[in-house]
Amino acid sequence: MNTSTAAIPKLTIKVVFLGESAVGKSSIVLRFVSDDFTESREPTIGAAFLTKRTTRDGNTIKFEIWDTAGQERFAPLAPMYYRNAQAAVVVFDITNEHSFHKAEDWVKELHEKAGNDIVIALVANKMDLLNVQGTILDEAVNEEEVDSFCQREGLLYFKASAKTGENIHEIFQTVGEKIPYSKQSPRRGSDHDLTITDDQRIDLQSTTVEGTKETGGCNC
């Protein structure tokens, strides 16, 4: 849409979504992406892999959003996904205490295996359920416990609702701002610095020739 966003992104951020199944990972992603969804509809992948461009300081940033399987039996497979990720969003269900404990486990695992450079955001989803008919119900997850945990682990913390859209864009906005431009290249280029960006460009151009300029984004 916007020509500025259609331009070659200055920064591509790989965001991994982690969390127990049914906490609403895909919903958050879809909510975030759905506003200008026409741009990058990829029905065959659906909610598992989505991209979204935003601008930061006049530069285009692209989010690559990787969904992971939340089921317990797939838990050992998570490392395949968060490898090379710059950011991780760990989601839990505010009405389900167990999902919070699971989230704690994810955070610990990320710190251990993904290194300390990774930006981790903790998201309490389904906040709308606490405001049923104007009355605020007691949340199943203890607020103070969450706060102290975030302090301790150095996490970004958001209370969001995929249903109402509350705080969804803020999550990505904040995460995007946390990732430095400079940081992308060394991380990525740990093996081959220059070739990657070159390849990416070539890739993008090849697709944009055929269709609209923006479609190049989906191939990244």
Binding site: S21, A22, V23, G24, K25, S26, S27, L30, R31, S34, F37, R41, P43, T44, I45, G46, A47, A48, D67, T68, A69, G70, Q71, F74, L77, K126, A162, K163, G165
Partner: peptide, 25 residues
């Protein structure tokens, strides 16, 4: 997740395939 997801996904509701489904498949 059910209704939650359906509400937010507008026209895509029938096409949502999250990672759980994808890996199982």
């Amino acid at each position: 997740m059910g209704s939650h997801q359906l509400d937010s996904s507008n026209g895509l509701n029938s096409l949502i395939m999250d990672a759980d489904t994808l890996i199982s498949l």
